[in-house]
Simulated assay, not measured.
Amino acid sequence: MVQLRELDVRQILRDGGMPFQLIMDTFASLQPGEGVRLQAIFEPRPLIRQLTDRGFDHTARRIADDDWEIDFVPKGTAEEASAPDALWPDPVWNLDLTDLPPPEPMERILARLEMMDSGEVMFALLNREPVFLFNELKERGHEWIGNFDETGKVYRIMIRCTPLEGTNAKT
């Protein structure tokens, strides 16, 4: 399964900003096999052409008049990203960690993941984007998707427990 990084540039665009450099920096930082789920207020056709030339397939979905979601995946993995098993089950755990200061939300999430079965999903609300958590999840072999809510103040993340072989997670 292709891991998609969430990148929401809707507010930047609404404020008249130009998120092109942020988008390019995000793509430059991708690991092999990673893609991006871009949220924008329009279908960015010139950007799509440029990223297609750089080796990415895309799927664009119009959510509303000014709400688009575009998945960019490395060429050759688009079928895998849209496969039925790419759908996630309902979360087993729902955590509201918005009132906790760092690093407590990350510590609680990692501790809960150690008790979860492979394939189970956790949903968490955080008061900021958990950039340090992403590296920890990647090292442990977990999958995640996340983004800010419509207010831009609460970060929502779903994490699928997929422990690496040899870890102490429940099986």
Rank of each mutant, 00 (worst) to 15 (best):
F27H: 01
A28W: 07
A28N: 09
A28I: 13
Q31E: 10
Q31L: 13
V36G: 02
V36N: 00
R37N: 06
R37K: 10
R37Q: 09
L38H: 02
L38Y: 02
Q39P: 12
Q39N: 10
I41E: 01
I41Y: 00
F42H: 04
F42Q: 01
F42D: 08
P44R: 01
P44G: 01
L47C: 08
L47P: 04
I48M: 06
I48R: 03
I48E: 03
R49G: 14
Q50M: 15
Q50I: 15
Q50L: 05
T52Y: 04
T52V: 06
T52D: 08
T52E: 11
F56N: 03
T59D: 12
A60P: 05
A60I: 05
R61S: 08
I63E: 05
I63S: 03
A64I: 14
A64M: 09
D66W: 02
D67Y: 07
W68T: 06
I70S: 02
I70P: 00
F72I: 08
V73H: 01
P74W: 14
P74G: 06
P74R: 01
K75M: 15
T77V: 11
A78M: 14
E79T: 14
E79R: 14
E80W: 13
A81E: 11
S82H: 06
S82N: 10
S82D: 13
A83N: 09
D85G: 11
A86N: 12
L87S: 14
L87E: 12
W88F: 09
D90S: 13
W93V: 14
N94H: 11
D96N: 06
T98M: 07
D99T: 08
D99H: 10
D99N: 13
L100E: 09
E104G: 06
E104K: 05
P105W: 01
M106K: 04
E107N: 09
E107G: 00
E107C: 10
E107A: 10
I109N: 02
I109K: 02
L110S: 12
R112Y: 11
R112C: 13
L113D: 01
E114R: 06
G119R: 00
M122H: 01
F123N: 02
A124W: 02
A124S: 07
A124Q: 02
A124L: 03
L125Y: 04
L126P: 00
L126T: 05
N127V: 15
E129M: 12
E129Q: 03
P130G: 09
P130V: 12
V131D: 10
V131M: 14
F134S: 07
F134Q: 05
E136Q: 08
E136C: 06
E136D: 09
L137S: 02
L137R: 01
K138L: 14
E139Y: 07
G141Q: 04
H142M: 05
H142K: 00
E143T: 14
W144T: 06
W144P: 05
W144H: 00
I145S: 07
I145G: 04
G146H: 02
G146S: 05
